[in-house]
Design a protein around this nucleic acid. Structure first.
Lengths: 152, 152
DNA sequence: CCTTGACTTGAAGCGTGGTTCAAGTTCCAG
DNA sequence: CTGGAACTTGAACCACGCTTCAAGTCAAGG
């Protein structure tokens, strides 16, 4: 076992690009933990860098810190969690579709000559179906829980 | 001109799935506006439904309400804005890549048998490069503005 | 030993994206 | 005219994801 490869919070911060405050925040939320303390100071195993990469990635995909925490704690026996992961993967799939269409629309918009760019028919076409629904024919029964933040 | 095809806020809410409060919020932020008022009540042209579809879509892609506002105001003469759109499209492209990798990783994780799922080498491999960077070799000069929210 | 600078804590603050509430207005039916 | 539902406003509140601050502690170097 190598002498003491432990990193202090400042080091981890520099290597991940995250602020120390963010690291402490993640710790409070249970996403990471120092291997131990050097006095009061957190001492991290280098593995935390990978974990943080993962976290940053998941964050960038729109997962909430809370959910990332649950995923990080996952064990093969967590059937529930596996289902949630699968569900998430499907959400991501849809999201990827939307993003792709939006990207294409933006690319077109950047080049198109319609007055309010938004009115360009090509743009419209490219966007088409991007939105969850613009159902002009009513179908919502009534007072369901008003759609919350969509993700997380 | 057809008699009075104007929609009231409740109607728009029902047809878009957005809460009336959200519509007023978007109005404050300049994303939408009623055609006029019927007394005090907002009267919307049906076109707003499309616009809201667009907004919802862009939101779901992670654009901030403020930026959506700028894009919605775009005119062909806005060179600046076109550049921003192109830049956004490129961001989206990267984002799509990250999401795709994360999706695949999640799909694998949901099926893999490693103890802390996160430690599965396949998972790791799938994730590989998803994170913005886990640069183990230092390169950050120093006190730059600590990375802000990444998007918007 | 003493300084210095990076760390520690908890609490407060901030920006975003809304929701909720109170109090009042207005439309429409009956 | 009267009632009730749906609208109006501004202001307050919420959750999230952090950052910032004040006040204190500690490890290491000169």
């Amino acid at each position: 076992m190598p002498d003491e490869p432990l990193l202090d919070i400042g080091e981890v911060a520099r290597r991940t690009g995250l602020a120390p405050s963010a690291l402490r925040f993640y710790e409070r939320k249970g996403l990471i933990a120092p291997e131990g303390r050097n006095g009061l100071r957190r001492a991290y195993r280098p593995e935390v860098l990978e974990r943080l990469g993962l976290i940053t990635c998941a964050r960038s995909a729109g997962l909430s810190v809370a959910e990332i925490g649950r995923f990080l704690a996952a064990r093969p026996s967590d059937g529930d969690l596996r289902e949630r992961m699968t569900a998430r993967a499907e959400d991501l799939d849809e999201q990827i579709g939307r993003l792709t269409r939006l990207r294409d629309s933006l690319r077109h918009a950047a080049v198109c000559t319609h007055e309010p760019v938004v009115d360009c028919p090509d743009f419209r076409r490219a966007i088409g179906g991007v939105a969850p629904r613009t159902h002009t024919g009513g179908d919502r029964p009534d007072a369901g829980p008003r759609r919350r933040s969509a993700h997380a």
